[in-house]
Simulated assay, not measured.
Amino acid sequence: MFSKLTEISPLAYSYVYKDFLWLLLLIPILLLWYVLIHIKKARSINHSSVAHFENPAFNFWLWFKHFNFLLFLISFAFFVVAFSRPQDPKDVEEYKKKNIEGIDVVLTIDVSSSMFAEDFKPNRLESAKKTAMQFIKQRPNDRIGVVAYEGEAYTQAPLTTDHQLLLSLLSEIESGTVDQGTAIGSGLITAVNRLYKSDTKSKVIILLTDGENNRGDIDPLTAAQVASEYGIRVYTIGVGRNGMAPYPVQNMFGTTSMQNIEVRIDEDLLKEIATITDGQYFRAENENELNEIYGIIDKLEKSKVKVLEFKTNPPEKYYGFLFYGILLLTLYFLIDKTLLKRII
């Protein structure tokens, strides 16, 4: 508590009630009033000789009275600053970070072999991982998980706030871990299973794919209905440029050559999933567009974040000002009612 009483750095603080600080302008006004009052009280006395006034004695009590009024002005300044509710900007920023309600997000990434197409550099999969990592770094307050899918779906990382671990697990995603294909429904329902028990007010899935649903026992629209029932919003992203895209193909001799393959994204399905879940569909034809899409989603979800109203406000810095204000005001009245009584 004593340390709080010594925290008086008014120029370093921000103030909740800044308008109160205008009251400090009363100090020079009061000082001017005090000076004028004492000038008027001065009397000119006619004497036949000024010999007695050549070396006037120092009037200690008169100057002590001036000093006491200065104590009053300083105490007034302390009270004004205290009632303005000073706060350290660093404390306020830290409070905001701690009291922002994060959301739960599951990144659901297609890792089928078609994600090796090189219309994104170095390929779609690496580009998807890179942009997902950037998104994670922008969401420090969120619990984020990762689901990967091709012919089957699996959880690469459960919901966690350990973003360093999350980034490491995301970087390890590879194609070919399970059966080939694109099981969009399986990927979506696996992500739903990671979220449906969450008690956060905002639950989000970002579903990324470059193809059409051709594997799995779960219909994507059925999975979307389940997500909707649990209040989970799904943003869908189709990746791949229109037309043809270069794709590495290995021949029977083990050598790899590039062939153009047709880009086939079931955009109607992705739009329907987004509509059912109150989400939004996006199409990315290059890495820059994919970055922009993640940026849009980041902004959309940040606009839904709710700053909680806690009983405890950011740490206040008024204690020292209030303490010294009371101390000086008390001292002023003690001096005025006791020691200065001898001044006539």
Rank of each mutant, 00 (worst) to 15 (best):
L5P: 00
T6D: 00
P10E: 00
A12R: 10
A12Y: 08
Y17C: 00
D19G: 09
L21R: 08
W22I: 10
W22N: 09
L26F: 11
P28A: 01
V35Y: 12
L36M: 10
H38T: 07
I39C: 02
K41N: 14
N46R: 13
S49M: 14
F53T: 11
L62T: 06
F67M: 14
N68K: 08
N68D: 09
L71H: 03
F72M: 12
L73E: 09
I74A: 03
S75I: 05
F76D: 00
F76V: 01
V80R: 02
V81L: 12
Q87N: 04
D88R: 05
P89A: 07
P89N: 09
V92Y: 06
E93Y: 11
K96Q: 13
K96R: 14
G102M: 11
V106S: 12
S114L: 07
A117K: 10
E118F: 09
P122F: 12
L125P: 08
D142Y: 11
I144V: 14
G145P: 11
A153P: 02
T155G: 08
T160R: 14
Q164V: 14
L165M: 15
L167C: 07
S168G: 13
S168R: 14
D179F: 12
G181M: 06
G181C: 06
G181W: 10
I184Y: 03
G185I: 13
S186K: 11
I189Q: 05
T190P: 13
N193T: 07
L195D: 13
L195M: 12
Y196T: 08
S202E: 14
V204S: 08
V204Y: 08
I205Q: 10
L207S: 06
L207C: 06
N213I: 05
R215V: 06
A224E: 07
A224I: 11
S228H: 13
E229G: 04
R233F: 06
T236D: 04
V239R: 04
G240A: 06
G240H: 04
G240P: 02
R241T: 07
R241I: 04
G243P: 12
Y247F: 15
N251L: 08
M252H: 10
F253Q: 12
Q259R: 15
Q259T: 13
N260H: 08
I261Y: 07
R264T: 08
L270K: 02
A274N: 00
T275L: 10
Q280C: 00
E285H: 00
N286G: 03
N286D: 12
E287K: 13
E289S: 01
L290M: 03
E292V: 00
Y294E: 05
V305N: 07
F310W: 02
K311F: 11
N313L: 11
N313V: 07
Y318C: 00
F321S: 02
L329N: 07
I343T: 12
